[in-house]
């Protein structure tokens, strides 16, 4: 068997399509609800796996091209697997002045990924955000729901080590 096909099937096997069905059940027959349906799916899987999108397309009778168009239009939808921990580095004015670029740089060095990427072990995803709204703590990052403020590059490693 072709290796690519094999790989594809493994991915499909990993995605619980029955779970997808139950997630989107409330929206069946209502094509205008495709965004909430995709949100539900993403909340469950952390991103939008292709087999799940195909299942949504089939069940909601919305062309896959349309779902893909919607999913790639809105920044909130992710097409690739994301880490267990999402690091959001604040790029707001206050943080910028207080050295957030250096923080981001150190995180990138430590994890070996660039902003927007995910580590191979799916532990971290690194993102930059406009402003977290905690300027008093500048420079600040968030890891999932935890804020970490008044950072310096040297503190980065210890903080990351706390998230396994």
């Amino acid at each position: 068997m072709n290796r690519e096909i094999e790989a594809e099937e493994t991915v499909t096997e990993g995605i619980d399509l029955e779970r997808v069905d139950s997630l989107i059940e409330p929206y069946l027959g209502r094509k205008e609800m495709m965004i909430p349906a995709l949100q539900k799916v993403q909340n469950h899987f952390g991103y939008l796996p292709r087999p799940a999108m195909e299942q949504v397309s089939k069940r909601m009778r919305v062309p896959l091209s349309r779902l893909y168009g919607v999913a790639t239009f809105y920044a909130q939808f992710k097409m690739k697997p994301r880490g267990r921990y999402i690091i959001r580095v604040c790029k707001g004015t206050a943080c910028h002045i207080q050295g957030s670029p250096k923080i981001a740089e150190r995180i990138e060095e430590t994890l070996g990924i660039e902003s927007g990427e995910t580590t191979d072990d799916l532990r971290f995803t690194l993102e930059e955000v406009a402003c977290i709204g905690a300027c008093a703590l500048a420079p600040v990052i968030m890891i999932n729901d935890d804020p970490h403020g008044r950072l310096s590059p040297d503190k980065v490693k210890d903080i990351l080590d706390n998230y396994q």
Partner: peptide
């Protein structure tokens, strides 16, 4: 086909 992505990278594309 449908519009995929947005802004400068918008294009008309088949799914994925």
């Amino acid at each position: 086909i449908d519009f995929a992505r947005r802004g400068f990278t918008s294009n008309v594309a088949p799914p994925f």
